[in-house]
Design a protein around this nucleic acid. Sequence first.
DNA 1: TCCATCTAGTTAACCGGTTAAAGCAACCAG
DNA 2: CTGGTTGCTTTAACCGGTTAACTAGATGGA
Lengths: 363, 363
Amino acid sequence: MKKRVTMQDVAEKAKVSKASVSFAFNDPSRLSEPTLRRIMDISQELGYSSDPAARMLRTRRTNSLGILLPQQIHTIFENPYYNQFLQGVGQTCHAEGFSLLLVPPLRGSMLKAIPTAAVDGFVVSGLEFDRGEVSALSRRGVPFVLVDSELRDDVPSVEIDDSEGVAELVRHLLDIGHRKIAIVAFETGTTGGYKNWRGPVRRRADGAIAALASQGLTPESDGISLVEVACTRAGGVAAFRELWARQDRPTAIVTFSDIIALGVLDAARERGVSVPDELSVTGFDDLPEASWTFPALTTIRQPIVTKGRLAAEYLVEAIGAQQAPPNRPHRRLPTALLLRESVAPPNANLDPDSSRSVTRVNE
Amino acid sequence: MKKRVTMQDVAEKAKVSKASVSFAFNDPSRLSEPTLRRIMDISQELGYSSDPAARMLRTRRTNSLGILLPQQIHTIFENPYYNQFLQGVGQTCHAEGFSLLLVPPLRGSMLKAIPTAAVDGFVVSGLEFDRGEVSALSRRGVPFVLVDSELRDDVPSVEIDDSEGVAELVRHLLDIGHRKIAIVAFETGTTGGYKNWRGPVRRRADGAIAALASQGLTPESDGISLVEVACTRAGGVAAFRELWARQDRPTAIVTFSDIIALGVLDAARERGVSVPDELSVTGFDDLPEASWTFPALTTIRQPIVTKGRLAAEYLVEAIGAQQAPPNRPHRRLPTALLLRESVAPPNANLDPDSSRSVTRVNE
DNA sequence: TCCATCTAGTTAACCGGTTAAAGCAACCAG
DNA sequence: CTGGTTGCTTTAACCGGTTAACTAGATGGA
């Protein structure tokens, strides 16, 4: 158990000041050739390695970005959405030379994790509503960018047009004749039904409700229902079973995540229900899996990788400009409706033509 | 642009010492009720948030683990292997309350990234041979665990039995009659053919060669070949095309990664080559995708999640014991041969019985 | 000769927390 | 009255780098 080697140790042995040792590593041109060589040799000999914490304290730079996450890390990696999102953030990290710190909730709270992370800024994911996080982030004194949570006008954010994405899909279902539509959201940790939903789920539900309204339908109308389940394949299985057990079965199930939709497909297949002949199913995200399944999933594509990349770019920009308040803090990315095989008109035999893949893009 | 609020500011306004402010946050029981309340109120009012760098410098703790990676972050997230591995590491982070810092190479070098990362220890992945990294890590003064690189006896590592895994597979292929076997490795950045391969690829190749030897075959024998491609689906496609263009086509392609194997399956299907009737294909890893494809992939399962979890647990243990040298630094995990549909005897019609899934476990 | 300039280095003040040790008052037991 | 104990708070020494400002000596042009 030997003592750590510090800059002071090197300086003494090389008979120079601490400053010179610092220059040797950070600005070698300020030293003469022999001095530089001596310092480097002695650093090598003593096994010197500089202390990141000390450097960070003095320079106020860490060279890492933080991602504030709503769930524990191992859960995040089970979710293909985050895989894509982190790819995008990773692109920016690479381009700008940052490391990436994954910051899960500390003792169950995102709030508590904020003051302890040594980062130059935060990308905040999954903040559905503000329990004090925004204020804690401001205190913290580093820039931050919210993703999928346009909570306040004065806080930068990157998001997608959840509402219009779902609205477009639901309009399509209505157009081809569906009138018994079940909406399957993922849980937001609220109680009291869809009226208390928050964040992206709320916006998606709003889009669906708006589209339904154009046909005079409401969430309370016969045949329409809104339920919530865990955002997992198992959640999708549960959703299908619940909906199929009802008197008034839906002809279309609109889920707010491809993962849930895959679970619905699993359960339907298990039950011998043919998709899309007896039931249409839709997803959200366009994960890679969505196009591999049988039948291929009709879904709302969102540019997840781009979202991650842009959020991080935005953040890096704010870090560079030491305080310059961004003048247009919100950035909204479009979605695209991908029509694949899992949707057909209700009670129709499978029309071969309907299985072509068609794309429509918003905006 | 306002100045940062420090502990000193709070202390002055509350008419107490810096130490009391520190106690208010870290050990409130040391303060009287009114003082504590006053300090907390004023912290709130001024918007105080403690500085992680300063705390880290003084306490010598960061509460984060580092993962030293061989590629840029966005590339890592494209690789399902790392997805699983990070899940495992994430489990330990959760259990032990750590954040996770992803540390990609800095200006192309893992070596340069080591001194700048503020972490309590490193899990090192993909270090195929030592260009000074081990020594830099020692200097750095934090514990570290190598994964899949048993480089030195005195450095802790977690790995799998690559050699025996592949040997078992190749023995099986030989048993069922294959004599024309192509081995497809992924690139290790070396030149000069298989004799210069390093790391896991080297060990896997050694296993294959040992198994071949039991039938009097060598890498130079007719029908046997060892090639290397990128560890991507596209790499697998390229490998199939090259091998299939030869005079002496293999009856079995043994790849060192499921990703490559999937590419081989893609290319074979495109070419109208039936697997396993005309060609047997095998992978390595048992990624989730391996069991979904048609035909399901015969592969060597390795416990990736467990490997990540154990490496991190090992690291946390070393961090806790401030210097205690671990007495058994190497941990080797077993592989399992999973026989699925992509393998059959050469030139045989598909035997229905051979498509059952069978498992054999080493050791 | 004198002053400006350049080179190679030094000095010392930070950065913002933590914590061992000490101080001080009040209380208590002998 | 004395010495010990308890409860609350302060003092001051760190942790290990970075960097603005300064010095000393050499060079050089007028």
